[in-house]
């Protein structure tokens, strides 16, 4: 029950991040929204693992935390290859 409450809150925040990703006037707003989406996806995975009683989801969450950083840096590097 308590996990479901937190899950609803996290999903609402995911929706808000999507709104910013669609609105975002510059590329950096969208990358920022994607980065927040990554963090929220990690939390969603952890909460789903608890709701379903399957702790294996946490391993995916660990991987996703690392991929989130690499994804953000990769996009920034793609648009500004001279830096990083």
């Amino acid at each position: 029950m308590m996990f479901a409450a937190a899950l609803v809150a996290v999903l609402v925040s995911l929706g808000l991040a999507m709104v910013r990703a669609i609105l975002g006037p510059t590329m950096f707003d969208r990358v920022l929204a994607a980065n927040s989406t990554g963090t929220l996806a990690v939390l969603t995975l952890a909460l789903i693992g608890f709701v379903a009683g399957r702790p294996e989801f946490l391993d995916i969450a660990i991987l996703y935390t690392l991929l989130n950083l690499i994804g953000t840096i990769a996009v920034l590097r793609y648009f500004h290859p001279s830096e990083y």
Partner: peptide, 17 residues
């Protein structure tokens, strides 16, 4: 803790908007 965490997630994203 879970309710506070969910609230802070929503607050942060409201800030993003």
């Amino acid at each position: 803790f879970l309710v506070a965490g969910g609230a802070f997630c929503v607050i942060g994203m409201i800030g993003l908007i």
